[in-house]
Nucleic acid binder design. Structure first.
Lengths: 338, 338
DNA sequence: GCCTGGCACTCTGCGCGTGCGAGTGCCAGC
DNA sequence: GCTGGCACTCGCACGCGCAGAGTGCCAGGC
């Protein structure tokens, strides 16, 4: 195992490198952190750390930079989560409280996260599958065409147009609307299928086809995984990425455009707390030089969706983790209130 | 006025520069376009074009590149809109027809535009102010708390939570819902205020406060300009921008994050056809080295919103204009069907 | 056994001078 | 008014040398 001092050296390297963006040498280290030993000693420690794969040199006789493995150790053992200060917390709360609807909550959260962390922010809309139904509305667009509107407890709204196999009277419509709501209101999405399966039987034979169609559209809407939406922001922060820029930034922007990739990215993190995925730990190739810091958030005790940031592996982990955690907490509160 | 040949020279310069991204010299011009004159003559023409401000040299003794003014002349006089080929049109239609709801239509449109033009695509959601009301729904969340849901003819849904000054009974709620819908359904948003202003008078005294609150929330929702939403995509295309990259791309990304800026950008174009704003013609400073190609689209004959692309001033104007126009047309069709 | 100072070595980055090539402007001639 | 020719101007790529930062290793000291 690594001695205490070597861990300190690693910590110092990570901190300095994150601050300066430049490979850090033994002399600079002893000057900026009082490790109580000479540069030569630090050099020995560095050599050991390099053997173990925690740091690397870009070229011979340059300073060292942390590897993914080095960052991993730093995050797991050497650094805590830096809590937000009281004024910061107030600012977060104030900013989020001004939101008028769910879209606005998500939009504000994205802006906030991007500003706080100076990185790219990703916020998933509250998931359908883990929410409950607040109301189902049915509107007649035409004799044989309905609009189905689904409203969730988190304020999310989904709508679908339903083409009916046969004309559907206003009375039947009102009946279906009432029955549907009495069964599913305030129930979890996952319970809905079993709650409505016998519903067609309550209707006249000629209406059953339509009722079934409506129900299957409803169920589709509930399960449709790829309808998971998300919002991103702060892409301008990518320009602070590094010097060798176009090559690095391109795949990241491309990855960010792929909703699927992002959802998978957020989805991978199963930890109840803040999750950090560093460099090559990310499955997606374009994100191999980035780290993703994410966490679940929710209106109750349970997470209904995730949010996080994407930034260079060389990032301020404690600060970022603190910001992500704090924002998630307040968003949860806001959602619970509305 | 410029002679016919000088216009041809300008056209050739624009085409070559767009293709190669490099300043174009007199010799290369005569080789690639058969202008029927010698390089020396072209040089004279170039000098004249430069005097008039249509082209410029990055440094002495380099080739020429078009100025904003040069592009403007090119777009106005020298180039048409390049129509899409039949297979392209079919592809557009097929791609858009798979959409399940309005969000999906907009999302697909963004992807499509970004792919076709290889630039950044911006699509505005159908505007509220120019749409008509399909349905207004009121839900009781709590005795003195309602949710107002507004559904438009373009399938857009807006919701607001309303805190009532007094508890509001189920009967009153049903009454208000019915009256509201009978008055505003299928009416234009702009007509709504006058249609509902006397509505509180139809209610018992104790309910009037609530009715007024609901109405004012409804009106707010209708006029709220900054609730105009939009979606952008294809930002990865920014990496093809140029060599001097970080400096150029940064302000563009920042501008793209500002919804307000983008909305203004699209809003400025009042022309019924495709509008092109080149370089400094854009009010926003960060977009001084970009051009914006935009057009209105709508479900009927009338435009309900705009869409467009943002790219370097050095872009393929005819092709981009063709793509933008074609996409707008098909989106309009899709919206009219749903 | 571990730390330290010293020393030789190895790179990278930068400033500088040079040569080349592309492109221009101008001029005399057709 | 077009053309060929010519001298001129730059920017850029290349090669060179130097300084500076950082390393690895070794011998000596606590």
């Amino acid at each position: 195992m690594l001695s205490e001092r070597r861990l300190q050296v690693l910590r110092a390297i990570v901190q300095d490198y994150v601050g300066t963006e430049e490979p850090v040498g033994s002399k600079a280290l002893t000057e900026r952190h009082n490790l109580g030993v000479s540069p030569a000693t630090v050099r020995n420690d560095m050599a050991a750390l390099e053997d173990e794969g925690y740091i690397a040199q870009p070229h011979t006789s340059a300073g060292r930079i942390p590897t993914d493995k080095g960052y991993r150790l730093f995050v797991d053992k050497l650094a805590g989560v830096k809590p937000m200060t009281a004024p910061e917390r107030r600012a977060i709360q104030n900013f989020l409280e001004g939101a008028v609807d769910l879209d606005d909550v998500v939009a504000r959260t994205v802006r906030l996260l991007a500003q706080l962390t100076r990185q790219v922010a990703v916020v998933q809309y509250p998931s359908l599958t883990r929410s409950t139904v607040r109301h189902v509305e049915l509107l007649a667009l035409a004799p044989a065409r309905l609009m189905l509107v689904l409203i969730t407890d988190t304020g999310r709204v989904e709508q679908r147009v339903v083409d009916c196999p046969a004309p559907f009277g206003e009375a039947s419509l009102a009946d279906l609307r009432a029955r549907l709501n009495s069964r599913v209101a305030n129930r979890r999405f996952t319970d809905v299928p079993s709650l409505v399966e016998d519903l067609p039987e309550a209707f006249e034979h000629e209406d059953r086809g339509t009722v079934s169609t409506v129900l299957s559209t409803l169920l589709e809407t509930l399960v449709e995984e790829n309808e998971e939406r998300l919002m991103i922001g702060g892409t301008a922060n990518l320009t602070r990425f590094g010097h060798d820029f176009p090559l690095t930034i391109r795949p990241v922007l491309e990855a960010l455009e792929e909703q699927v990739v992002l959802l998978k990215l957020l989805g991978e993190a199963q930890d109840p707390g803040v999750t950090v995925r560093i460099g090559h730990e990310n499955a997606h190739e374009g994100l191999n030089s980035t780290s993703v810091v994410s966490v679940g958030y929710g209106s109750g005790g349970e997470a209904v969706a995730k949010l996080g940031v994407v930034g260079p592996t060389r990032m301020d982990y404690p600060g970022t983790m603190g910001a992500v955690r704090a924002v998630a907490r307040y968003v949860g509160q806001i959602l619970a209130e509305s």
